Simulated assay, not measured.
Amino acid sequence: MNPESITNLEDLITKNYSNITGIVISKNVHLVYEKYFDRYTKDDLVHVASVTKSITSILIGIAIDKGYIKNIEQKVLEFFPDYTIRRGEKYIQLITLKHLLTMTAPYKYKSEPYTKVYSSDDWVKSALDLLGGKNEVGEFNYSTIGTNILSGILSNATGQSVSDFATQNLFKPLGIDAPKPTFIQNKEDYLAFLKDKYVTGWIADPKGVNTAGWGLTLSPRDMIKIGQLYLNGGRWNGKEILSTKWIVDSTMEKSRWRELSYGYLWWILKDGYAALGDGGNIIFISPQKEIVIAIASRFMPRTKDRIELIRSHIMPMFQ
Rank of each mutant, 00 (worst) to 15 (best):
S151G: 15
K197C: 00
K304N: 11
I226D: 04
A296Y: 13
A192F: 09
K70T: 09
I145P: 11
K180W: 05
V199D: 01
G277M: 04
I55M: 08
E34H: 05
I23N: 08
T144Q: 01
W214Q: 07
E240G: 01
L77N: 09
Q160S: 12
Y114S: 04
K289Q: 09
E188G: 00
L260P: 00
F80T: 01
I20Q: 10
Y142H: 00
W236S: 13
Y83Q: 07
I25C: 08
D38F: 13
K289R: 14
L260G: 07
K195F: 06
P316Q: 08
L100C: 05
K70L: 10
L269P: 06
K270N: 15
K35G: 02
L229N: 05
E112V: 08
I6G: 07
T7W: 04
H313N: 14
H30Q: 13
L9A: 07
I92L: 08
Q74D: 14
R298W: 01
K239A: 10
T41D: 05
K207A: 10
N186A: 01
S151H: 08
D122I: 05
Y142A: 08
V199K: 12
L97F: 09
M1W: 03
T158E: 07
I153Y: 13
T217M: 10
D122N: 15
V117N: 06
K239F: 04
P316G: 03
I13A: 08
I85K: 12
G132H: 04
L260H: 12
E73T: 04
R311K: 15
D271K: 11
Y118A: 00
I92R: 09
I176M: 08
D38V: 08
I184T: 12
F193D: 01
Q168K: 15
D38G: 03
V292P: 09
K90S: 11
L269I: 06
V76H: 11
